[in-house]
Structures are given as structure tokens and as C-alpha cells.
Design a binder for these strands. Structure first.
Length: 569
RNA sequence: GGCAAGGUAGCUCAGUUGGUUAGAGCACACGACUCAUAAUCGUGGGGUCGGGGGUUCGAGUCCCCCCCUCGCCA
């Protein structure tokens, strides 16, 4: 039994996430956590909402609410949706927690103590009417390059040229529309990542088993241009972790907060503290290598856009502190999921969002499709046709129908109890051998976090059950040799329990209802397939279950295609 | 423009250090079965492995050039 710390990239508080976000971090992390727990390992699976920064402030203002109230509300919404998707977080925290504030300030002070913070005075756009500094992208004006009148301060959406806000003609605040803008001097703290370049490069070089996607992005940032750059870790905002605090080793930082990308990863640790506060658990066992975490395996899941922060920025914070914090062991990263020929887009409301998905179908449909099509080797694409075909075939026809045909046949011929009589022969031995072999492959893929390959193998195990039934034909055998048919169906009934156990990481709700139908609570992993297939003994009663997965009809699919063709309100 | 990752059957994807007739699922066709959610099982057709050169006895797999998609950076 090993100990596994698992974190999923923490979703931003602003709005409900789409399916692309889900499959890139939370869902595969949940799959892995569920699998490891099922194998008897000790798991701490953490996630949280990322709550600080300008977008949250503006969203709150738009909603007419104080930002802290807005965040509390949205956190509750996201937590409920996560539960709807059966995401098995041990704790779903908040980056705005008291724990994270204390920890973030402590890390900053420690980094300063280690000589890794420098102060930089720079000029930024200040909006007098808004009473605040504005990030570049919240300033709009006419592009000096192409004349486009809604170019953003960081880049022109029309000609794609990178811009500086001072280049814009007739610049205005997108917050208020005010043109009363001026350049003001402001002081910020920079994390001297360039000092850490050697240590980070050496660390990354040692990770030969990481996904190419992870290491290639990390190396690019390490070596591109002038190499890893120092990064500003403070902002002129009010919503965030205050830079000014008792014991702060720098002066004149009033009214500033830490940059959201500095405090967000630290929430991984703070979240464990929140978990400990809520449950009485010991967070240091998971995060302090001097207090028991040296034998923890730490795995992070994220989309490729988050890779630089997890391979470089956060490790720079951890390593730079020169304190015994647990460093990540494996970073599983994902490409993007596209939606019907284009990108999912939160800002433009394009695609299917998590709450909408749950209103259409049970979570297991989405979990199965998303995981079995996870964008591991390249970007992947969601289309309604593919979704309908895949889920109908895999879940309804292959797995669901297997449960139906076995339980209904048994009920008709022998009653709703595991029947007695007969014995296993060559066909049964062959099935056991196949399931044993495939289960090893399945486990290997799960442990390697090869999500698609694991899904393919699991499906093959389901198919093996249908192949066995088809070849054995108990519906024919029962006419001449009822005892033999009983042995066959006894095996098939036990197969349902085994399938529930091994499928649970992918489709937890359906797995639970399979177990309920079989009237068992024995979730023991089938390390020994042969004995696992006798777990339900002769005479054990079961219920003939309802249809496990209803099929998606063409009419439904067509309606959804239309419904989601446009933009979310 | 620079860099990275992709471009393999209609669709979604596997293809170890180059080695026999390039694989799987879906879709399609045919057959079997009729217990089951018109489900299942079997068989088959279908690919000049983005394009062009090159290395090699032999390349999807190595080298060079070009094209396309996507991402990061400038």
C-alpha cells in the first residue's frame, strides 16, 4: 500500500467550466484517485477554486455583488457540479482561504529571505475614473497597426499584433469606458526565477517518464529566447492576498496583492490544511518531507496551458524556499478538447458546460466518453454524432445489455437467485484466462495514467463477457442440460460484480447500481479472478435491474446539436 | 517569423530500439444466434501511413525540403 497525493488544476472561480476543462484536469485526476483507492492505496485528492484576480472582481461587479460574496456563491455552485460529476475530492478548497493567505505570505517572506525576490519599479496604466491600475487586456483602443477600433492593450484581435497599451490610439478602460487614463509608476515584486534556472533544468531533465507534452513545454520556457525570465508576483488590486503584512521584509507595497498565479498553486498545500481543519487529518504527512511525506507520490493533472506554472513557477517557489516541501513527482498534462470544429470557449460561451451536461444525461455518459477520448496525444474533438455512437455502443449495448441479458435470462429460467449445478469447463477457463490477462493490462495502463488505453482495455473485458455468453449459449444449453446452463449463468452473474468493481473509476454511479442490483457490497478488487468469480454464492438473491444506460436517440442528438449550436446566454 | 506537438482506413485512435501481407473500435456489407436495451457474436471490404527527395538489403518508424492543423513565443 502506497500513499498518493493527487491534485487537479484548480478551476477559476469565474463561471462554470466546460467539458474541455473537465477532461483536462479534474476528471482524469478523479479516475486515477478512484483507481488507486480501489487498489487499497492511501489517497489524498485535492482540488479548489482559484478565486483571486481581476476577472473575479469584474464578474462580481457585473453581478452587483461584493467580490467575496460572489466567490462564496460560485464556489458553492462549482462544488455542487463537481459532486454531480462524482468527482471524489477529499477536499474542495478555496484559494481565498485564511490558510492560503498565511501560507502565501510566508512563502513570499521566505523567498525574500533566500534572496530570490527583487523590487522593480515600472509604469502601468492607471484609470482615474475606475480608481485602479488596469491590466493591459482591460484597455482598448484603436490599433496603430491596422486601425481596428477594439484592439486590446496586450494584442490586437484583428491583426494579432502584440501591443503595448501606450501604443493604442484613443485608449479607454473596458471596465468603465473612461478615457481618463494615465501612466503611473508602481512598484512590484519579482520572483528571480532566472536564478533557479539551473536547478529547474536539472530537475526536468531527470523526468524521462513524463508526458512529452509536459517536458517539451517546460523546456521551451526554460530555453526560449533569453531563458527563464523573472516573473512579477504582485499586482495593483484589492482582491487577493495582501503583500503588506506583519513581518513583510519590504516596504511601500500598500494596496497590492500577490499575483493570482503565485498564490493559486500554494493553495494545493493550503487546501490540505483546510482538509485537515475540516477532518482532523494530518496535512504535514502529505506535504512536509521532514514530517512523513517522503514516501508520498505526488501527481498533478492539468491542461497544457497550465504546464509552465506547474513545471517552473511553482517548483521555483518550492525549491527556492529551501524548506522541506514535497515536490511533484509526476505531471500528467492534456491537450485541448475542441467542440464541433472549433474551440470550447468560456468567454464566448461556446460548447457544452458542466451544468448543462448534467441536465441532459447522467454523469457516467460524459465521464465515459470524455475519458475514453481524452486528448492525450493531441487535441481531440467532441461531436454529438461521435458522443451518441460511442456511449450507445459501449455503455448501452456492450455493458448495459450484458447486465440485462444475464439477469433476465436467469430470472426467467432459474429465478432471481444464483443457481446451483454444473461445473466450469474449457470455455470458463478460457474466459478466466482472458480476463486475468486483460486486467493486468488495464492495471498497467491505469498506473501509467494512459487513460484512453485503459478505457479500451476495460471495454475489451466487457466484450469478453458477451463473447463467452454467445459461445456458451446457455439459452440453448438449458433445454438439454439445465445444470450446465446454471453453471454458465452463475459465472455470468459473478462477472457483473467484477465488472462493477473494475469499472467504478470510470463510471461510479452505474457501478454502484450494478452492485445494488446484485445485492452485494463486496468491492474487493479481483486480484484473483478465479475466486472473484465465485464471490456471489449459490442461492444469493439479486434484483433484475432497470436498464443501466438508456440509449441516446437520434431525436435527442439532433435537438442537442441545435440547442448547443449557438452561444450560451 | 522562431520553437514545440500533431498530420496513419469514412470517423476516433494504436503502432516498442527501422524488419515478414500496417492494427483496434465505430460505421458499412454478409452470416450466426434469438437470452437481451432491433442488443450480441463471427467474417469481410476499405489505407501509395500529409507531399517530395535521401540513407538502408529493408522506413509509418532515421535524415533533408515543402504543405496543413494546433499551441507557445516574438
Amino acid at each position: 500500500m502506497a500513499r498518493h497525493l493527487i491534485t487537479s488544476a484548480i478551476p477559476y472561480i469565474n463561471g462554470i467550466k466546460h467539458l474541455g476543462n473537465l477532461v483536462g484536469s479534474q476528471l482524469p485526476a478523479d479516475l486515477y484517485a478512484r483507481y488507486l483507492r480501489a487498489r487499497g492505496h492511501e489517497v489524498l485528492f485535492l482540488c479548489a477554486t482559484d478565486e483571486h484576480g481581476t476577472p473575479a472582481e469584474l464578474a462580481a461587479a457585473k453581478a452587483g455583488k461584493p467580490v467575496d460574496a460572489y466567490c462564496a456563491e460560485m464556489h458553492a455552485v462549482q462544488a455542487e457540479i463537481a459532486q454531480g460529476f462524482s468527482l471524489s475530492f477529499d477536499h474542495f478548497g478555496r484559494s481565498s482561504s485564511a490558510q492560503n493567505r498565511v501560507l502565501t505570505q510566508a512563502f513570499a517572506a521566505r523567498l525574500a529571505d533566500q534572496g530570490l525576490i527583487r523590487e522593480v519599479t515600472e509604469k502601468q496604466m492607471y484609470s482615474v475614473a475606475d480608481g485602479r491600475f488596469l491590466p493591459d487586456r482591460y484597455i482598448e483602443g484603436t490599433c496603430p497597426n491596422c486601425g481596428f477600433d477594439s484592439a486590446r492593450g496586450d494584442q490586437c484581435d484583428n491583426c494579432t499584433k502584440q501591443l503595448d497599451p501606450v501604443d493604442l490610439i484613443n485608449p479607454r478602460s473596458t471596465v468603465s469606458g473612461s478615457t481618463e487614463l494615465e501612466l503611473r509608476e508602481t512598484k512590484h515584486l519579482y520572483l528571480r526565477q532566472s536564478e533557479m534556472k539551473g536547478a529547474l533544468a536539472e530537475w526536468i531533465e531527470g523526468k524521462q517518464d513524463w508526458p512529452i507534452l509536459t517536458t517539451s513545454i517546460a523546456k521551451k520556457w526554460l530555453n526560449d529566447g533569453d531563458g527563464l525570465q523573472d516573473r512579477g508576483i504582485t499586482r495593483d488590486l484589492s482582491w487577493g492576498v495582501p503583500v503588506q503584512f506583519e513581518g513583510a521584509p519590504w516596504a511601500g507595497m500598500d494596496g497590492k496583492v500577490f499575483y493570482v498565479w503565485f498564490d493559486a498553486p500554494i493553495e494545493y498545500i493550503a487546501c490540505a490544511q483546510e482538509w485537515a481543519a475540516a477532518t482532523g487529518g494530518d496535512w504535514e504527512r502529505w506535504w512536509r518531507t521532514d514530517k512523513g511525506a517522503e514516501d508520498v507520490t505526488y501527481t498533478q493533472f492539468m491542461g497544457k496551458d497550465n504546464v509552465p506554472f506547474h513545471t517552473l513557477s511553482f517548483p521555483a517557489t518550492i525549491l527556492g524556499s529551501n524548506e522541506p516541501w514535497k515536490l511533484v513527482d509526476y505531471i500528467k498534462s492534456f491537450n485541448y478538447l475542441n467542440y464541433d470544429g472549433g474551440q470550447f470557449s468560456t468567454s464566448r460561451g461556446r460548447g457544452v458546460f458542466m451544468d448543462q451536461a448534467l441536465s441532459l444525461l447522467p454523469a457516467d455518459y460524459w465521464r465515459w466518453w470524455l475519458l475514453s477520448h481524452a486528448p492525450e496525444s493531441s487535441d481531440a474533438e467532441f461531436t454529438w454524432e461521435n458522443f451518441q455512437q460511442s456511449t450507445n455502443k459501449d455503455l448501452a449495448d456492450v455493458l448495459g445489455n450484458l447486465v440485462s441479458r444475464v439477469t433476465k435470462f436467469c430470472n426467467a429460467k432459474f429465478g432471481a437467485v444464483v443457481p446451483d449445478g454444473g461445473a466450469w469447463g474449457a470455455a470458463e477457463e478460457a474466459l478466466i484466462a482472458e480476463v486475468e490477462g486483460r486486467l493486468v493490462a488495464y492495471s498497467t495502463h491505469m498506473e501509467a495514467m494512459e487513460v484512453r488505453k485503459a478505457a479500451i482495455e476495460l471495454r475489451s473485458i466487457w466484450v469478453a463477457g458477451n463473447e463467452y455468453l454467445q459461445a456458451s449459449a446457455p439459452w440453448t444449453v438449458v433445454k438439454t442440460d439445465p445444470a450446465q446452463a446454471a453453471a454458465q449463468i452463475r459465472l455470468a452473474l459473478n462477472l457483473i460484480r467484477v465488472y462493477a468493481v473494475i469499472s467504478q473509476p470510470f463510471i461510479p454511479t452505474a457501478a454502484a447500481s450494478m452492485m445494488t442490483g446484485m445485492r452485494t457490497d463486496d468491492w474487493t478488487w479481483p486480484d484473483d479472478v478465479r475466486s472473484a468469480l465465485t464471490a456471489l454464492p449459490v442461492g444469493h438473491a439479486f434484483d433484475v435491474p432497470e436498464v443501466l444506460f438508456a440509449k441516446i436517440t437520434d431525436a435527442e442528438r439532433e435537438a442537442w446539436q441545435v440547442q448547443f449550436a449557438g452561444v450560451r446566454d
